[in-house]
Design a protein around this nucleic acid. Sequence first.
DNA 1: CGTCCCCTTGAATGAAGTCAATACGCGTGG
DNA 2: CCACGCGTATTGACTTCATTCAAGGGGACG
Lengths: 248, 248
Amino acid sequence: MNRHPLLTKLELFVSLSAADKEMLLQATRQKQRQLGAHEDIICEGDQPIVVNVILAGWAYRYKQLEDGRRQILAYLLPGDICDMNVFLLKTMDHSLGTITPVTLAEVSPETIQELAQVGRRVGQALRWSTLVAEAIEREWIVSLGQRTALERVGHLFCEIFFRLQAIGHASGYSCELPLTQAELADTVGLSTVHINRTLQELRAQELIMLQGKTLTILDLERLQTLSLFSPTYLHLDRDGRELDAVEG
Amino acid sequence: MNRHPLLTKLELFVSLSAADKEMLLQATRQKQRQLGAHEDIICEGDQPIVVNVILAGWAYRYKQLEDGRRQILAYLLPGDICDMNVFLLKTMDHSLGTITPVTLAEVSPETIQELAQVGRRVGQALRWSTLVAEAIEREWIVSLGQRTALERVGHLFCEIFFRLQAIGHASGYSCELPLTQAELADTVGLSTVHINRTLQELRAQELIMLQGKTLTILDLERLQTLSLFSPTYLHLDRDGRELDAVEG
DNA sequence: CGTCCCCTTGAATGAAGTCAATACGCGTGG
DNA sequence: CCACGCGTATTGACTTCATTCAAGGGGACG
């Protein structure tokens, strides 16, 4: 098992060679940054100059309307790349912030371009991770547009659990969930009060347990059915396996 | 002005050289496909083998839940690329269909890779267009999560108008809007009945006119304010201008 | 020990959905 | 040329889901 979350993540798509791994390690070792909980990484309007890769902790992408309403757009977990190509844009159209303390690697556009060379296995893997991030955003659109409160929260929990499990951050049916109810509310487009009631409903149906910052899914199958969750959109099934490095 | 919608679109980011344009023309000329209105281009579960580029007409991206609920995820207008990297995935996690009759270019993965070479101006432009598509999806998340019915519909109309205007498909404050109220409903996560009432409200406030399949925005500024719309996320301001081809 | 943040609860309100009936517009075929 | 039918748009009455407001509770931390 890889210690390095980016390697772990990319190997969900394709087996990397020793050289591939070394290249990625190099790239993420150069410049790192430590942040506390609830800090901004970069704000809407700023010019993006580096590509951030989450090495530890939870971050999130969000957008704030002039009148204060906030929508959370994505959660960025260890191994996630915050927009591989942002540096093509003059200004950020959204913000990134931390939930928990976060360690991130700042990768220069040049290094990213180097890694992303067309034809490279690593390049394909990086592009795959972008596709997955987009698929997740699309699934959030489906949730917000079509799913009920209960389904939305259930779906979010399934998604987070599967994602964390994939990078080795789950044990059994439990995983970290360092979110407040206000953050959950701004994620699924509900009020905090209604989130609270929805959580109670999920608990009453014996689908989940939430103690402290730990989520335990008591009946994953039933939770998936209830929330119309199907993990296919996460593309965790090694779609790039025919590109695997032979060495293993 | 370019006749070719893909060139028009990419030149919103950067001026292309004659060679760049020739390369793109070549790539989209090889294999074209004509579809009628309301046909599927590719369905969830299918294996993606080509990259589709819209040359004419309106298409859309959508996802259907088992119980029939449908969410529209994006509108694909002339010049739009339907996922530059899809072919990395084994199966589609959503479907594409047409709204109007559509002409599309089917570009092979190899050709796309060729065009997308890192360092190439065309490659950057293609990646920029992907970033914009993502930004639009994120803005839809904001709409669905935070905006009221009136704001959602107003915002959608602003977005469509700006996008069409950018590719030369608007005249004055009018543009095509070949959508039924049911399609609008599945876009902004409301019922058809409520869409109908929301449209009436927009008309009553003298913000829009809708006759046949033509949308006219009567007071763009007021519509933008009302829907908390700011066009910055569309990145139409030539972010790549320092990469411009010198020839012009 | 008090303060702040987060969670919880109840009651009243409001936005949007559902149901069901009706109207419109357009193309087809009689 | 008109009648019919079908998809789309419109309307009203009622219901439901979620929000808002407001108050209380619990735990962590200085």
